[in-house]
Amino acid sequence: MEYRRLGSSGLQVSQICLGSMTWGLQNNQHDADEQINFALAKGVNFIDTAEMYAVPPSPDTYGKTEQIIGSWLSRHKEKRADVIIATKIAGGGLPWIRGGAPITGQAVSAAIDASLQRLQSDYIDLYQLHWPNRVSPHFGKHWPNLTTPSKEDGSAEVDGMLDILQAIGDAVKAGKIRHFGLSDDTPWGIQTYLRLAELHNLPKVVSIQNEFSLLHSKDWPYLIEQCIHEDIAYLPWSPLAGGALSGKYLGGARPEGTRWSLVQRQGLFRDTPLSNEAIKAYADIAARHQLTPAQLALAWCNQIDGVTSTIIGATSMAQLKENFTAFSLPLSAELKAEIDAVLKRYPAPF
């Protein structure tokens, strides 16, 4: 297992981050315990969760994933210092979470306390904003004019960001959280938080997690370059594009119990004819090189310059073990050239 610095935090995190969003819906406590124990035995020291989880989100599953992790932590207190726990406050739009209201400093303070209680921990290593208050070009909204930043009140956004960051600063001083990160944000969001931190002597952003995969590589090179030079860890989520890059949904297949067999809050926006063509092409390359499609996609993500730790999740131990092997697989020049040829044909298939 390789370890890489989590931005300017000084923490060393494993190149694999264990994602947890299936715990509490597709997976139960026993499943989660098995996954955590396996991952830690393999050298993983980084677990990502969120107050919103399990996914797909619902009032019934809100907070359940943190509770499951908290149960494990309560039974393994001696390991708490060895595990880096990252969680996230949900943004606006979910009526069962703070009435769907946007993130505020007051909301941050209350959400941190609630997460600490569910996690049964005195502190959170990395506390992240799940998505910003403004509409950002994520979740399929990265095409021109699907967002309209010219209509946003920039000054009001900055005021709101300062309010959030001040609450983060208070939580750091109180020892409730150690570090601050972003998710589903943009270069402007990163830069604004950096500027506010410097101006007001508040915590610096140490990481950002955005969707990044062979089907969704829009953060390369511009946002990732900024992360490298500002010493911010880049944490890809959904490196298998919601499981699509495993090939299991090709031809309209919906295996029972899989994520795409469940109703999705954002819809199946990754499921397009071009995406299916790209996935089939990657699957063919993987077969020629004696890899599974998932291993190919994860190994590609891991070797991208600037990637710190890739967030992976699984609903079965077989999937988790398959995914783990990808991180010890070198990609030959020939294989990378074949992948690049497909990526150039399908740079943005959804």
Rank of each mutant, 00 (worst) to 15 (best):
D82A: 15
E157W: 01
Y346G: 06
Q120F: 02
D231G: 02
E51H: 11
L240D: 02
V263E: 13
W143C: 11
A341S: 14
D305V: 11
A278W: 00
S115H: 06
D271P: 00
C227P: 04
T87A: 01
Y222V: 15
Y282H: 07
G160W: 02
W188F: 13
S328F: 12
S109L: 15
L194M: 12
N28S: 11
G43E: 09
G160N: 10
I224D: 02
G267K: 02
I224T: 03
I190Q: 01
Y53A: 05
N145C: 13
Q295R: 05
Y193C: 07
A171D: 03
V158A: 08
S207W: 06
P255V: 00
F139V: 12
D113R: 03
L126P: 00
Q15E: 14
M317H: 14
S316K: 13
P132T: 11
D184W: 00
P273E: 10
H216F: 14
R75V: 08
A39N: 08
S14Y: 08
R134D: 07
Q264R: 06
F269R: 08
E225G: 10
G92E: 01
K79I: 13
E225L: 06
A333K: 14
H216W: 13
A32I: 05
K176F: 06
L320Y: 13
G70P: 02
A253H: 10
S14V: 07
Y62H: 14
W188D: 11
H30I: 15
Q303W: 08
P57Q: 07
P144C: 10
P59R: 05
P293V: 07
H130A: 08
R5H: 03
I89D: 02
G43N: 06
Y193S: 01
P144L: 09
Y127W: 07
E256Q: 12
I339P: 07
L40H: 06
A253F: 05
